[in-house]
Amino acid sequence: MKTFNYLRATDVDVALQRIAVEPGARFLGGGTNLVDLMREGIEAPETLIDITRLPLDGIEELPDGGLRIGALVRNSDLAAHPVVRGRYPFLSQAILLGATGQIRNMATVGGNLLQRTRCLYFYDEASACNKREPGAGCAAREGFNRGNAVLGTSDACVATHPSDMAVALAAIDAVVEVRSSRGTRHIPLTEFHLLPGTTPHLESQLESDELITAVELPPLPVAAHSYYRKVRDRASYAFALVSVAAALDFGADGRIADVRLALGGVATKPWRARTAEQLLLGAAASEDSFATAAAAELAAAVPLPGNAFKIDLACRTVVAVLRRLTTERSGS
């Protein structure tokens, strides 16, 4: 790890002023991703501004029934929050299916959104990676790419966004609040992360001097009937091969009245499955309608030899999750 300066921020404005004048500085949340990447030599900030003692660790209920989550709320606290468990169960499930008890105790909401890909070649200093070194090439395309993406990929990059939490947040239409000394912005989560295109090193809309201060969840009745399913190579402590965040509600006619669907493990960013949602809305709940919607969403998928199975797996998992939610609804 390269030497750096360490600063402990206790005041948001001071932290923002500091980062504005130090372009080589980075914020340090739980450190569970950044410290690892620095140790591997993949990140080398000159200064770390420790933000974990900033007063951004509260969860507030909003008057409209939504929720405002401070950027420094620890993943485990968010997952355990009774309002999240009750009104947005799939968000809690997504978090609890990620990493481990220890890591969730350290990881922050802001850091989770900004965690970087686990592509084997991104993590290997001796391999070519456009994300690490623009223009270097992509060793993953013809290498081991079981973990890589099939949706939202480009010639330059096929790296998966690894977050589980962000997949549920994409389904919820969460909004990311960011601040800099220039002011405050609100960015919808589904637009927060960027597709790789020809610039895979640019991963989010966040500017280098901006701090994530909160994530806001809109009120979303359908989210009370939601489920997060994660499919992976062992029963726990592994990143997703495919994950599905879904919420489903029916009208009086028994047809689908509201639906939210997002995919993880298969895409270069948390993937809101709008094509599938549109097909499902107003449809009757059936294996067929679920499968058709899933297939339509995955129609744009571009497989690689090592991850082609994910297309079928994603479709099957979507169907299984929607089936489960349907059964639960008709049971209750």
């Binding site: 686990r118 084997l120 070649y121 993590y123 290997d124 001796a126 391999s127 290498g143 081991f144 190579d233 062992r234 029963a235 726990s236 402590y237 592994a238």
Partner: peptide, 16 residues
């Protein structure tokens, strides 16, 4: 090159 050089890429069985 060995690409499964870490415990995050070589999956040992866990408790679960």
């Amino acid at each position: 090159r060995t690409m499964s050089a870490g415990l995050d890429s070589y999956y040992l069985p866990v408790h679960a």
